[in-house]
C-alpha cells in the first residue's frame, strides 16, 4: 500500500514538474524534438543505404566460362570445386545452347545471327552463374576459380563492384557514426537544458533532502519527468518521419534514379519500427539527461 502510494506520488510529482515548469519543459522538449528530427533523417538515410548495398550484394553474379572442349566430367569437377569454397548462395549452369536462346530473345539482329548457328558452330561457351553469400570475398573466389583447369574466363564486373562496395561501406559507417554521435550530443544537450530547469528548482531539492526524502525518492520523479519530456519531444519527429517518409516513397515511386538497384525500403513496417526507435531514443536521452542533471544536487 505504501509502495503503491509512493509510485503514485512519483508519477504525480513528475507530471506536476512538467506542467509547473512549463517554459523550461518546453525548452527541453524543443531540444529533443529538433535533434530527433535530425536523428530520424539519419536513420532513414542509413537504413536505405544499407538496403541499397544489400540489394547490390545480392545482385552480384560471377560468370564462369568453361573452355569449349570441357567435358561433362570437367563440368562436375568445377562445380564441386566452386561449391567447396563454401561461399555459394546459388550456382546455376547455363549451357551454350541456353545462352544462345537467351541472346535470340534479346533482339532481332541477334535472333537472325543465332539462327544461323548449329551446335558445332555456336561460338558461345558453357557457363556457371554464381551468386556468392559474402560479397567481400568475391575477389578471392574469382581468382581461385580462375585457376581451375578448363576454366576459360571469370567475370564479375570487378571494378564497379569493388568500388560500390567500398563506397557503401564508407557511407554506411558515416551514417551510423552520425546517428551515434547525434544521440550522444542530444543526451548532453538535453542534460544541460534539464540542468537549467532543475537549477531553478534546487531549493525544492534542498528542502526535500532536509525533510528526509531519500536520494532515490528525489531522483525518480525527475527521471520520470525526463522520460515524459522525451516522449512528448518525440511525438513531432515521429509524425514528420511517418508522413515524410511515406510521401517521399510515393514521390520517387519506391526507387531512386529509377534504378532497381536503388529501391527504397517499403514504408511499412519500416516507419513503425523507426518510430519505436525514435521514441526509445527520446525516452532514454530524456531519462539520462535528468539523471545526470539531478545527480549534481544530491551531494550532501
Amino acid at each position: 500500500m505504501k509502495a503503491l502510494r509512493t509510485i503514485k506520488r512519483y508519477f504525480r510529482d513528475a507530471i506536476k514538474g512538467v506542467v509547473r515548469n512549463f517554459s523550461l519543459s518546453l525548452a527541453s522538449i524543443s531540444c529533443i524534438t529538433i535533434t530527433l528530427v535530425v536523428v530520424a533523417t539519419s536513420i532513414i538515410i542509413s537504413y536505405n543505404v544499407e538496403n541499397f548495398a544489400e540489394s547490390i550484394r545480392q545482385d552480384v553474379t560471377i560468370v564462369i566460362f568453361l573452355d569449349s572442349d570441357a567435358t561433362e566430367e570437367d563440368r562436375d569437377r568445377i562445380e564441386q570445386s566452386i561449391r567447396n569454397t563454401g561461399n555459394v548462395e546459388s550456382l546455376i549452369f547455363k549451357s551454350k545452347q541456353e545462352s544462345a536462346e537467351e541472346a535470340k530473345n534479346e533482339n532481332e539482329i541477334f535472333s537472325t545471327i543465332v539462327d544461323g548457328w548449329t551446335d558445332d558452330t555456336n561460338p558461345l561457351l558453357d557457363s556457371f552463374m554464381l551468386k556468392v553469400k559474402d560479397v567481400e570475398k568475391i575477389k578471392q573466389n574469382a581468382e581461385d576459380i580462375k585457376k581451375l583447369d578448363k576454366v576459360n574466363n571469370v567475370n564479375y564486373g570487378e571494378d564497379i563492384v569493388d568500388q560500390l562496395i567500398t563506397v557503401f561501406k564508407v557511407v554506411e559507417k558515416i551514417a551510423i557514426g552520425a546517428v551515434i554521435a547525434l544521440i550522444i550530443v542530444t543526451a548532453f544537450l538535453i542534460s544541460n537544458t534539464i540542468k537549467l530547469a532543475i537549477f531553478s528548482r534546487r531549493t525544492e531539492i534542498e528542502i526535500m533532502r532536509l525533510v528526509g526524502a531519500s536520494n532515490i525518492s528525489i531522483k525518480v520523479p525527475f527521471i520520470l519527468e525526463g522520460l515524459f519530456l522525451g516522449i512528448i519531444g518525440s511525438i513531432i519527429p515521429i509524425i514528420i518521419m511517418i508522413y515524410g517518409y511515406i510521401s517521399l516513397y510515393d514521390f520517387f515511386d519506391g526507387k531512386l534514379f529509377s534504378s532497381s538497384l536503388a529501391e527504397l525500403i517499403e514504408p511499412y513496417p519500416f516507419v513503425y519500427l523507426a518510430s519505436l526507435l525514435l521514441l526509445g531514443i527520446g525516452m532514454l536521452v530524456g531519462m539520462f539527461g535528468s539523471w545526470r542533471a539531478v545527480r549534481k544536487y544530491l551531494k550532501a
Binding site: E204, E206, L210, V211, G212, S214, N215, K299, A300
Partner: peptide
C-alpha cells in the same frame, strides 16, 4: 554516507533564518 543522510533527517526537524519554504 551521503545517500543515508535521509535516515538522520527523518528523526530531526530543522528551522532556518531564511525559512526555505516553497513559494508555489
Amino acid at each position: 554516507k551521503d545517500r543515508k543522510v535521509y535516515i538522520l533527517r527523518r528523526k530531526i526537524g530543522v528551522v532556518f533564518q531564511d525559512f526555505k519554504l516553497l513559494p508555489k
